[in-house]
Design a binder for these strands. Structure first.
Lengths: 275, 275
DNA sequence: AACGATACGTATCATTCGTTACAAGGCCCG
DNA sequence: CGGGCCTTGTAACGAATGATACGTATCGTT
């Protein structure tokens, strides 16, 4: 494990000359943001010259200033993603490994929904509720089950819900039916499947509105998508976690249920009576 | 009070052209750190050109890119000073209803894993890891996607994984292949489907080991099952939530991955090389 | 189907940034 | 009191960044 910038400073601040120590102290006082600004600004804040800042950074063991900034950014990213995470679960039962999986899943879910704006969410929900456009749902190897889950619910709430199953080659037949008013809902997380992206591109060419659910690295399908919602998938496991995507699907199911409260209820009664 | 960058985006994202919208979406997905990097890096991440990033920033109301970065830095500074409010996107996030759905999902997950004993969990994991027995997975209308999700992962880790898809009538053909050493993994939550229970009973008669994942009211299949794990499904929505079941599947995937660390790794390499 | 407007990317420019060489200043030791 | 080392700032260089002009492609409109 690389030592953090703060640790490096603590180790060497005693051997630093006066000017560099002032740099170190101002960095600690405004940690870490002042280090993300330019050398000149950092220097001015510390009331030293630019070269002193660079010598200070070099003494910490960094090759150059951009390397130093990259280290700070990485720390910040890690900090922004999981400060209070490990305290959520009282974890006394199931195996320790399972507990950490659960923790990260919960944290992913929380993080994901903090990044989704109300506007974005309701725009997607409205689109999914519009019965005038057909909905085509599909996903990659591991995300397709979530597409199925969403499709199974939406199909009860509205007409025109089609899940694109099986081989990608067979989807192309459906392309002919897809038009400007229609909507392709794609789930795509790493590793992104080229077949899915190809299909999305062809659909986009036909004017189909594309809604993409993906991970934080964002599938290439985003290029063609009208709406993109990204979920966190980080996990201590060998596999990424799709739990956040799953909960996202459930919240959308709820939203569509509310939007179509009247028509949807009648429709569901009809379906029930047909059993 | 100046509007935050996130608010500015939410206000204008609908009027943005496609390229700038992609910039907005990638910024939201990696908020706010990607905005602190250079224009070129931001552009590459969003798969647009540098000028598009600058136009995007201009549309948000900033005079130039450094101004935009300064705004992000200021928000970040304010946030870092009050660690209690670690809301990354300070805006009104997803609608209140969505928030309660998320909360209840998280609560379900927590509760579920508090009621699963380590012994029970590892017994199931070991059973799923045993390559000598074939695994047949299936589920009900809404839970079948979770069975698929589990099957998709297990199929990469071990041989003999079969997902029973489609019509229940076609499953009966598989019954002939199922023997004492084999294993049926059933997902069944309200409203329990009689066809699935019938099939489970027939399989049990043939000596098949049955592992049941169900809700807190416990499916009738439990009568024939060797292992039963129940998850919480309570939700403020019109639908039950399967999020806890989903996370349970993911923890089992992780456990099986660990148990089959050596053979599983080789197998996955083989599969990869066949692509 | 042709037009017009809008949006996007390529290429280029000017600026700013990080970097480095060098000289001035201060401090300790002889 | 003077010499050598360490430290620091000034100044200049080269690289990389942000900004812009322009041509092309795309979309919607008539």
């Amino acid at each position: 494990m690389e030592p953090s910038v703060a640790e490096r400073i603590a180790d060497r601040i005693d051997q630093m000359p006066a000017g560099e120590r002032r740099a170190a102290q101002t960095l600690i006082a405004n940690y870490p943001l002042i280090g993300l600004r330019t050398v000149a600004e950092f220097a001015q804040q510390a009331e030293v010259s630019s070269p002193t800042i660079l010598r200070f950074v070099a003494r910490l063991g960094f090759q150059n200033y951009p390397d130093f900034q990259a280290a700070l950014q990485a720390e910040l990213a890690a900090q922004l993603q999981s400060p209070l995470s490990r305290t959520v679960m009282p974890t006394k039962v199931a195996p320790a490994e399972a507990a950490t999986i659960v923790d990260s899943a919960v944290e992913n879910i929380r993080e994901t929904f903090q990044h989704i704006s109300a506007k974005q969410f309701s725009a997607v929900a409205t689109r999914l509720s519009d019965p005038r456009s057909r909905l085509y749902l599909s996903g990659g190897r591991f995300s397709d089950p979530i597409a199925r889950y969403l499709a199974a619910h939406l199909a009860l709430l509205r007409p025109g819900v089609v899940h694109l199953a099986g081989q990608e080659s067979t989807w192309r037949d459906k392309l002919a039916d897809m038009g400007k008013k229609d909507c392709l809902v794609a789930f795509d997380i790493r590793r992104y499947q080229t077949g899915l992206a190809d299909f999305a591109e062809k659909a986009a060419r036909r004017g189909v509105t594309i809604i993409l659910f993906t991970d934080q690295w964002v599938s290439p399908i985003a290029r063609f998508a009208r709406h993109v919602i990204s979920a966190r998938t980080a996990s201590p496991s060998a596999w990424d976690s799709s739990a956040a995507l799953f909960v996202l699907a459930e919240t959308l199911i709820d939203a569509v249920t509310r939007e179509r409260a009247d028509q949807g209820a009648k429709r569901m009664q009809d379906i029930e009576s047909l059993r």
